[in-house]
Design a binder for these strands. Structure first.
Lengths: 118, 118
DNA sequence: ACTTTTAATCGTAACATTGCGATGAAACAA
DNA sequence: TTGTTTCATCGCAATGTTACGATTAAAAGT
């Protein structure tokens, strides 16, 4: 009987549904205060932001760049090159799609009846 | 000029607001498919669940126990000892409070006007 | 008392994440 | 061409997270 070798430290995504993995991926992006702060700032400014994210958040430039990369890979933000600087803003279409997925998860308690215990 | 020593690998929570840190903490809990699956199962069953979480999710008992501990510490679930087994269920009051916080973050796009770029 | 059942905890292995200095690349200015 | 600015990437250090075997603890059954 062949047994799948478990790789320690790595989440076993294979045993979960696509939806479960997708929810987890998005939640992970929100799982760091710097990324929360970046998104809040982009919404507040409400236009492309070129550069001043490093000044706004108190982290070094490579660190901010890394956080932006993760948000961009998930499709939550867009980045447009503008001369020497790069302008970032929220990807509103994807944000709405993301919200729908997360809200379905968060609103599970609406469908559930009053529990019979606890 | 004394410089705060940065501890590598550790999130610099001090430079963010309480709300930002709180959102990140909750999101972190949802940031693993096993915990998403556990919560979904608890909602689906809609009563206390004694034991069968290990059978339901395909992970070893100590691993499930660890995930349950994190969800419990965050207040999202409750655990009642019942003989030799322990029964878990959603902490509905805290779930609603948590939803309010996350929804404020997710619905930022409603307040923002049409962006002037991108 | 002894065994069984159930779940927490301990210890450890391995990968992931965070942070930043140093460096590189690309556009612009002089 | 030679700086300058702006940001991405590399490389590393340090802590965090995930997973599970082994063990422990507590209640219940025999």
């Amino acid at each position: 009987m062949k047994q799948l070798k478990t790789v320690m430290g790595l989440a076993k995504t294979e045993i979960f549904t696509d939806t479960q993995n997708e929810i987890a991926s998005i939640a992970k992006a929100f799982g760091h205060p710097a990324r929360v702060a970046i998104l809040q700032h982009l919404f507040k400014i409400n236009t492309c932001v070129c550069g001043d994210l490093v000044n706004e958040i108190g982290l070094a430039q490579p660190t901010i760049s890394q956080h932006l990369k993760e948000l961009k890979m998930l499709g939550l933000i867009k980045g447009n090159v503008e001369g020497t600087s790069v302008c970032y803003c929220i990807h509103k279409d994807n944000w709405i799609k993301m919200k729908a997925l997360i809200n379905t998860f968060l609103n599970q308690d609406n469908e559930a009846n009053a529990s019979s215990c606890c």
